[in-house]
Design a protein around this nucleic acid. Sequence first.
DNA 1: AAGAACATTGCAACAATGTTGCAAAATTAA
DNA 2: TTAATTTTGCAACATTGTTGCAATGTTCTT
Lengths: 142, 142
Amino acid sequence: MNNIFADILRKNNLSITPCRSAILELFHEANGALTHAAIEEKTGEQFDRVTIYRTLQIFVEKGLIHTIPSPDNSILYALCKDDCSEGHHHDDHIHFICNQCSTTVCLDHISTPKIVLPKGFKVQQTDVLIKGLCAQCNSNSQ
Amino acid sequence: MNNIFADILRKNNLSITPCRSAILELFHEANGALTHAAIEEKTGEQFDRVTIYRTLQIFVEKGLIHTIPSPDNSILYALCKDDCSEGHHHDDHIHFICNQCSTTVCLDHISTPKIVLPKGFKVQQTDVLIKGLCAQCNSNSQ
DNA sequence: AAGAACATTGCAACAATGTTGCAAAATTAA
DNA sequence: TTAATTTTGCAACATTGTTGCAATGTTCTT
């Protein structure tokens, strides 16, 4: 009852279950993006693979998390900011992936640039994916 | 001999084989990005699935094609421009995916914006993925 | 043009990833 | 506490991607 994860689930009209709470907690601890594989690794003994798939699916639908297009093609999931509610997503994201430690972060506070497309094209969503070195790996390598 | 695809293969130190020529031709016809699935569909009766995988892999290594991170997580491949040679890739790309017809194009001529990251971060590669309506679908819907 | 050296292909088998239906268990609402 | 509803785990399956190896095809030399 006095659980912040239960509160989040309740606000989103989701039943409160151990699996959902645990995965929410994982994201809050991680402070970055997680692959399905990583989530399965950390909770796989408690919950079935299928349940994890379905939990992530419903979290995406409800706007709790969003997917990140990744270059190596493993789906990444990250927490949405509070103002991303159901059917009302932030459509623009900048994501940073560290080439060394693979940490992926969602840079919500930096706005995506407006890009001018050829005539007739209509922009609906912009995803920016930046790869490089994060602050920590960058300072270690110098 | 008087085949442009054979020429391309020769220039890249690749043996000239039916599969490689056919896939190169596919890309030139497509004038856009192709998923592995699409390539398999169009050549699957002629060539083995594994061969297609290996062909695409080697094309990426040689810099003939590049991969596009896609939001729905099916790897997209697209032809590189001529100045993308082995070990010397264009690191910045803008890709446009049409939400209606799914056509994906590589907008080489538009340069990627410089994005300022938090202190300490080092940018090595920028991918911009824009979703919306292409010129054709946009005009049809009006 | 023929044969040796080399690279590529297809097959089979496997691993990883993702999906579906359904009965059992848990959660919610009364 | 019970009935209605949701969620879970299991099994089975579909899709996607990988590896080793023998057979075939390509290239290079002469």
